[in-house]
Amino acid sequence: MTITDRLIAPNATRSEAALCYSAAAVGAVTAGLLAKNSSVLVIVVVTLVGFDLFGGAVVNATASAKRWFHRPGRDARHHLAFVAIHVQPFLLALVVPGFGWWTAAAIYGFVLAAAVVVTSAPDALRTPIAFAATVFGVAITTHARGALVPALVRTRPADQTAPRPPAAGTGRAHDARVTDRARFPGSVRSLCHDDLHGSARVR
């Protein structure tokens, strides 16, 4: 089997392959840019996760992948095993400081539970149930992003250095801004705006 046969499906068309690889590349670049100021290990892991998740989402929607993964002899056990081996949340928890194991477990547990529900449902209801699960999954991962984004920001090398003294003329206004930021660290948007100075904003 070729690499495309393994990553997408046997007999995938050129258009399907181009679309899947393009989505995977965009995902890898986006994730890599998000983690660009982190350690090399974090950058590599986050980039690979982005490649797999973006590309995999498109692969699962192709006709060739549907034919391959639902070919004769495949049943719910195979589908659940496929979902279960995708342990990216735990990989992120392992290498990204601040991305907790409980967050990883919540994401992984929800996806696995959703897969059980979908594969157990009647054929006519599987698609709408899968879409419903996707909506709730987006809500959960959006909440988890609030843990991942600051975690990546906090792993910047600059965070490991001693703070610089305030520039002349900043005085108490600068100190008050730093104090307010420390007191209210939940504003990811302000952190990205103030600290990253116009870098790519996370979706």
Rank of each mutant, 00 (worst) to 15 (best):
Q160V: 09
K66E: 02
L152R: 08
V26Y: 03
T170Q: 14
T141V: 15
H143G: 13
F184V: 07
V83A: 15
A61M: 13
E16Y: 00
V149R: 07
A147M: 10
G109P: 03
H78K: 08
W102G: 03
A93Q: 03
H86M: 07
P157C: 07
V45M: 08
F131L: 15
R183E: 14
L191E: 11
P89D: 06
G32A: 09
A173N: 06
A114D: 14
S199F: 11
D159L: 12
G186W: 09
V58Y: 02
D52V: 09
R126C: 02
K66P: 01
V87H: 09
A104S: 04
L34I: 02
A158M: 02
A121N: 12
A182G: 01
A162H: 05
P10F: 12
T155N: 11
G27C: 00
P163V: 01
F54W: 13
G137A: 04
V58D: 01
A176H: 07
N11C: 12
D5E: 00
A23G: 00
V95L: 12
R172Q: 10
P157A: 15
D194Q: 10
S38D: 10
A115T: 04
Y108D: 03
D194T: 14
A105E: 04
D123W: 06
H174S: 12
P166L: 10
A182Q: 08
A132Y: 03
T155Q: 13
F131A: 13
A162K: 06
A158K: 05
A23M: 02
V40I: 13
R189N: 08
A28F: 00
P122D: 15
V178A: 13
D175V: 06
R154P: 03
A12M: 00
D194V: 12
A132V: 06
V153A: 15
A25F: 04
A35L: 01
L94M: 11
D194E: 15
T127A: 13
D75H: 14
V138C: 13
K66L: 08
A182W: 06
A31I: 00
L125I: 03
